[in-house]
Write a protein that binds this DNA or RNA. Structure first.
Length: 228
DNA sequence: GCGACAG
DNA sequence: ATCTTGTCGC
C-alpha cells in the first residue's frame, strides 16, 4: 500500500506526477544559489495548515531583523486541489501561499519557509519553488529530512552537520536548541547555505524553530480558529 | 527487492 | 498536515 494512502486522500495520477516532475526539472534550471546581496532588515516566515481535506490556510509573518519583532501577519484561506505526495509539496501549498504573500503591505528581504529548499530529490523543494515564483531570496527550515544522509550533530545549540545527497552538499542539520531534535536548513533560491544557516541560528532564540517559522506556525493556529 | 518519504 | 491524554521539564 503506497505511503500516501495513509491519508484519506485520492491517489495521484501517475501521468500527473510525471508532468509535475518534468515541471520541477525545468524550474530547477533557473535556480540561483549565491550569497544574498541584501542588507537584511525584514524577514518573513510562512506556514500552512489544513482544514478538512481540501481547504488550506496560509500565513505570512513579517519580522524586523535582527530584533525579530512582529510587524505584520496576514493569511489567506482557500482550496487545495492536489493530495500530499512527498516531493511535490509545493504544488499543493504554493498557490495559497502566494495569495497570502500578496497581502503583505511591506515585502521582506528574505523569506524562511517551513520545508526544504534544494535538499529535495530534484533540488526543488517548496522553498525553492516559491522563491522562483517570487524572484526573491528564500531559504528552507524543515523539521524532518526528505532526502540525503547525515550524522547526528552534537547536542549543543549551534552544532551543525552536513546533509549530503548523491555526492552533493544540499543542506545543514542544525541544532537550534540544546538537547532537542535538530532542524534541516537549506538554500532555496538567490541564497546560499552558509548564509541560511547563519540566519537560522540568529533567529533561534528560545525555541527549536527559528522565530519566523515558529510565529507563522503559531498564527496559523490562531487564524484557523477564526475561520472555523 | 526492501525501506524512506518535507507538510 | 491532522486526529488525540496525560505528562515531563524549564
Amino acid at each position: 500500500m503506497p505511503y500516501y494512502r495513509r491519508f484519506d486522500q485520492p491517489a495521484p495520477d501517475p501521468a500527473l506526477l510525471a508532468r509535475l516532475t518534468e515541471q520541477q526539472r525545468e524550474m530547477q534550471r533557473r535556480v540561483i544559489i549565491q550569497k544574498p546581496d541584501f542588507n537584511l532588515k525584514l524577514i518573513a516566515g510562512c506556514d500552512s495548515s489544513f482544514v478538512g481535506e481540501d481547504h488550506i490556510l496560509s500565513v505570512f509573518v513579517l519580522l524586523s531583523y535582527p530584533e525579530l519583532e512582529v510587524l505584520e501577519k496576514v493569511w489567506h484561506y482557500g482550496e487545495v486541489e492536489l493530495p500530499y505526495v512527498p516531493g511535490f509539496l509545493s504544488f499543493r501549498e504554493a498557490p495559497n501561499l502566494l495569495k497570502a504573500y500578496e497581502k503583505l503591505q511591506q515585502k521582506p528581504d528574505l523569506i524562511m519557509v517551513d520545508g526544504h529548499g534544494i535538499s529535495h530529490p530534484r533540488r526543488l523543494g517548496i522553498a525553492t519553488h516559491l522563491g522562483l515564483q517570487l524572484n526573491k531570496p528564500i531559504m528552507g527550515v524543515a523539521k524532518k529530512v526528505l532526502v540525503g544522509r547525515y550524522k547526528e550533530p552534537d547536542m549543543q545549540k549551534g552544532a551543525v552537520s552536513p546533509l549530503e545527497h548523491k555526492g552533493e552538499l544540499i543542506g545543514n542539520v542544525l541544532r537550534t536548541k540544546d538537547n532537542v531534535k535538530p532542524v534541516f536548513v537549506s538554500a532555496g533560491h538567490l541564497m546560499d547555505l552558509a548564509s541560511a544557516t547563519e540566519i537560522a541560528m540568529a533567529c533561534s532564540v528560545k525555541h527549536k524553530l527559528p522565530e519566523p517559522t515558529r510565529l507563522a506556525d503559531h498564527y496559523a493556529a490562531v487564524f484557523k480558529s477564526e475561520v472555523k
